[in-house]
Design a protein around this nucleic acid. Sequence first.
DNA 1: ACAATGATTGACT
DNA 2: GTCAATCATTGTG
Length: 200
Amino acid sequence: MIVANLDLTDTDVVSLARAVLGYRLCTNLGGRLTSGIIVETEAYRAPEDKASHAYNGRKTARTNVIYRPGGVSYVYLCYGIHHLFNIVSGPKDVAHAILVRALQPESGIEIMRERRGLNIRDKQLTNGPGKLSQALDITLQLNDVSLNRDSGSNIWIEPGMEFPDSRVIRSKRIGVDYADEWKEKLWRFHVEGNPYVSVK
DNA sequence: ACAATGATTGACT
DNA sequence: GTCAATCATTGTG
């Protein structure tokens, strides 16, 4: 599926994770619009990537959505507390996904503050995968839905701004120490110096 | 049916 | 730096 000029059915999920930086992630729930610019991502590339939920071709009720054609959401509950948002990518039956780890808040900052805590500083609203989901009210209700704005979804991505390669840093993914040699892959991308990134 | 666990966060020493 | 929260999902029997 083509979403916002981005071909999310491309098989190169690592390049896609880079390309998604600068796009705007939006939710509109109950007439409340919140959005932010994507400033940190990670690529997950099943079946070979041991860090992926679809590692080794695992196909279950939860992971089925990762095998869909690119362009839909994959939201799951982590540690029983936090919802994490992914962009499913790759052709049908290719289980690739892009975890969105941080946003630079744009619209609805006061709504985000209501959801996150009234005394939360702007920099702490969306600087982590669980935090941004709370700020945008991304829950399991938004799992497995199209990210095309035209489809009438309550959640979508759209072009925002462009970051030059000179400002993009590649590094190891966060929190995947269990994944043997796959934890060494430089499949995390973030905008250098951006104050809304989760881990510098 | 049961036990283990996690792509995190916030509170605390 | 340490640690607990909290539960859907998963593998195992």
